[in-house]
């Protein structure tokens, strides 16, 4: 089970606005999903290494060579607010 207070706390971490109705619905649905996920706890995996990449690739690097990237105007084109050649945002609160 996950309480409405927990839902609001997680939503805040995720910077996700939720209406009161969504919080209530989410509490029930996330609770049910988490209950079904719980079954992985029954496995004793203390000495099993974790897998984060199925091919076990690690530390792939490419040569550090300078190359042309997107011009500034291009990169800013899809931005909602491209103030003064920068990404504009509202006041940092």
């Amino acid at each position: 089970m996950i309480s409405e207070e927990q839902v609001r706390n997680v939503a805040n971490l995720a910077r996700l606005g939720l209406t009161d109705a969504e919080v209530e619905k989410m509490s029930g649905q996330l609770g049910a999903i988490l209950d079904s996920i719980e079954q992985i706890q029954e496995l004793d995996l203390a000495n099993v290494p974790p897998t984060s990449n199925p091919l076990n690739l690690t530390n792939v690097v490419r040569p550090d060579e300078p190359h042309r990237e997107l011009p500034r105007e291009e990169a800013l084109r899809p931005a909602p607010d491209d103030a003064d050649g920068l990404f504009g945002v509202p006041r940092i609160d």
Binding site: A14, R15, L16, G17, L18, T19, P78, A79, P80, D81, F87, V89, P90, R91, I92, D93
Partner: peptide, 24 residues
């Protein structure tokens, strides 16, 4: 998050802008 591309819902502060943009 409404900064570099896609929808932005205008709001007074940046955190409220994130929250409302993602809610909407």
């Amino acid at each position: 998050d409404g900064v570099r591309y896609g929808l932005r819902v205008p709001a007074g502060g940046v955190h409220e802008m994130y929250r409302q943009t993602r809610e909407e």
